[in-house]
């Protein structure tokens, strides 16, 4: 006889042990890029100190840091508007991407009609668009939001649309045999199935967002990292230009890390199920 409550098939999982393990694992994994970064910075430092290149052409990394720190007041005042543009622009972008992706998913005809336009929108170079946006919308907040949105929504749309398509066919059929309508199938199967693709798109998009915001500011703005970098460049302060670049890189890294944290919170089953499969 088979015992109905047989437990032999179950893999025991003790959550806290796995938590500790995953923290140690991510520490070990983040060690490698940190070491590589340190090596590259050391090479830069040694090269700029030992070569005959002038300090205003290639300042040593340590000088970039000290100059940036000395100018921290101004750097901070210009970082805040950029971060604001990035976050609001990206939020608009994700909302827009979601609406578009739902339309594309519900109607194959819309997909055929809209997709080429979306792809086309990605071929317009940022260099051309940024000054045009300043001419059309002025020096304010709006052209920055628009540019960030335009540059970042595409990977999110593609991630969502591909994600919907990755839904298991039998799962969709099963729900239909249960009598589920189009909306229920979408919310119960297609949307959750799209989450991995969505987060992939989100991660790609976020890396473009800071660049887009700085570009928009570069073309014309009152404040922001783009303005800061342009000003520093105009007065041959390469150390401050690079300090601005370091801040921009840190913002991008931070936002990228944030998307990973949000992904973990939204879909804890995903990382765990992949670990079991490996």
């Amino acid at each position: 006889m088979v015992n109905v409550s047989s437990t032999t098939c179950f893999l025991p999982v003790r959550p806290w042990i796995n938590d500790v393990k995953s923290v140690l694992r991510s520490l070990r994994l983040s060690l490698a890029p940190l070491v590589l970064l340190a090596v590259l910075l050391a090479i830069w430092e040694i090269y700029s100190r030992s070569s005959t290149i002038g300090d205003n052409v290639l300042p040593a990394f340590s000088r970039v840091l000290t100059a940036g720190w000395a100018d921290r007041q101004s750097l901070w005042e210009n970082t805040v508007p950029t971060v604001r543009e990035v976050i609001i622009g990206f939020a608009v972008s994700v909302a827009f991407a979601f609406v578009i992706s739902v339309l594309l998913d519900l109607s194959p005809r819309a997909n055929r009609a809209v997709m080429p336009l979306l792809i086309g929108s990605q071929t317009v170079p940022l260099v051309v668009l940024a000054p045009l946006f300043v001419i059309w919308f002025g020096f304010g907040f709006l052209p920055k939001i628009l540019l960030v949105t335009l540059v970042t929504f595409f990977p999110v749309v593609v991630g969502l649309v591909d994600g919907y398509a990755s839904s298991e066919r039998d799962a969709v059929t099963l729900l239909r045999t249960m009598g589920a309508g189009k909306v229920s199938v979408f919310t119960l199967v297609r949307l959750p199935s799209a989450l991995p693709g969505f987060f992939t798109g989100l991660r790609i998009g976020i890396t473009y967002a800071v660049v887009a915001a700085i570009f928009a500011e570069y073309a014309g703005a009152v404040s922001g990292l783009g303005v800061y970098i342009r000003g520093a460049s105009g007065s041959f302060r390469t150390d401050l230009v690079l300090a601005g670049v370091v801040v921009a890189a840190l913002i991008t890294l931070g936002l990228y890390g944030l998307t990973i944290v949000v992904q973990r919170l939204c879909m804890p089953w995903y990382a765990a199920s992949r670990k079991v499969l490996q």
């Binding site: 437990t7 098939c9 179950f10 893999l11 999982v13 765990a272 199920s273 079991v276």
Partner: peptide, 14 residues
């Protein structure tokens, strides 16, 4: 006889 698995996720099951 599956009560103890109620809160498990499918990937944890055989």
């Amino acid at each position: 006889g599956l009560r103890e698995f109620a809160d498990s996720h499918p990937y944890q099951l055989s």
